[in-house]
Design a protein around this nucleic acid. Sequence first.
DNA 1: TTTGCCGGGAG
DNA 2: CTCCCGGCAAA
Length: 394
Amino acid sequence: MSSNSIHTVHDSTVPVFPPISYFLSPGFIVVLLCLTLTSLRDKRLIFPKTTCRTPMTLFSVGSFSSTLAPMDQSVIDSYELIKSPTHTHPAGRLYLLFFIMFHHKAMQNTFCDKIFRVISELKLNSQIGCLLGYDSMVLTGPSLSPAAVPEPASRGWKEVLSTSYSSSTSGNWSWDTSDQSVPSTPSPPLSNDSTHFPFVDPIPRKRKNSMKVMFKCLWKNCEKVLSTSSGIQRHIRTVHLGRNCDSDYSDGEEDFYYSEIEVNMDSLSEGLSSLTPTSPTTSGPPPIFPPVSLTACLPRSEPSHIAMRGTPSHAPTLLSQSAPSTLCHIRTDHAYQHFLPVLSVPAMVGLCPKATLLKPRGEAKKCRKVYGMEKRDMWCTACRWKKACQRFND
DNA sequence: TTTGCCGGGAG
DNA sequence: CTCCCGGCAAA
Ligand SMILES: [Zn+2]
C-alpha cells in the first residue's frame, strides 16, 4: 500500500502534519514567524500574550532541526517543545519558525499588533521576523513541502520586521537549512547567556504605591475594567461576543479584546466595575521604549527538507474545550504577566532610558517605512489614514 | 528629498 | 462613525 507510505516515517503514533495547502485555504492567512530568542523566557513572554488560546492555530517549525510540531494546545506544550534539544541552537539561541493559521482573517492584524507591542515593550533579547503570506498565493509547491517557499521577493510574502536589542544590529539572518546559525548576525554583546532562565526578581517596576493590574475591555466604546481576567473574559463573552453565560466555556477569542493595565490604587477606590476615565489610551503605563531597530530579514535559501509530523489539529478547533475550567487559563496568564515588565537580563547594558521629555516626534519606523508604499494595505489603520501609527507607536 | 501625522473634510 | 488627503514639520 504505497498510499500510506507518505508518512511512513518512524512513528506510527505521530499523526501527519497537514499539507501546506491546508494552511492556505482561502480566507486564512499564514504568518511565517521566525524568532530568534536567547532564552526560554523570551518565548514564555511572547506567546502567552499573543497566541495563547486565540482563534488561530500555531504550528511550530524547528527551523534548524527541520521538525514540525503542532502547538495548538497550550503554552505548556510549547515549553516542552522548546526544551527539546533540537530546538536549541548550538550557540545557545533558539531559532523558531512558526506557521500561524488564523481562523479569522481579521485576527491577523490584531495578532501582529499585539506581538509587536509585546516585543517592544519587553525589550526582548529577541529578533523577530514575520513573513506574512496572503491567502494561498505562496507555498503552493508540492503538497507537502514548505520548501516551496519561493524566493524572498515573491509577491505573496512580506517581511515585517526584526527587532533586536541593539539598534545597531542589522538583523539580517537567512536561515540555512541545517547547520549554520547566526548567519550574518553581528555577534551580540550578550555573552552571559542564559540558557535556562535565571529569573531575577520577578517583581516589576512597581512603584511604592500599590499598582494593581486590572483588565480592560478593548471593545469599541466599552471602557469596562475588571479586576480579574476571568471577569473580563466573561464580560466580553457575554456582552460583546453574545455568548451564553450559562457556562464558562470559552473559545479563547476574548483574549483579543482585553488587555491588562496597571491602575494606581491610590487614586482609585477599588472600582470593580468601572474605571475613572483618566487615560483613554489602551495600555495604562507607557513603558519606556528602547530604540528598536527594524530591519528587513528575508529567508534566502529555502529549507529544503522539513519532515512534517504532529497532530493535524482540527482547523477551527476550540482550544479550551478539553479543559473547560477557566481557572487553568487564568493561572497561566497571570503567571506570565508577572514577568512582563522584567527586562531581559543581558542586554540591559546598552539601553539608556534617556529622558525624552520633549518627545522629538517619533523615532521608530512606522508602517509606511516598514512596509512601503507598495503594500499600503499592510499598514495599520492609523497609518493608512495618515494618523499617528498605532502599531509602532512610541 | 522622504516620512509622520495634525487638522480638516467628505460620505 | 470610516476613510481620505493637504500641507506642514522633522528627519
Ligand atoms: Zn502604523
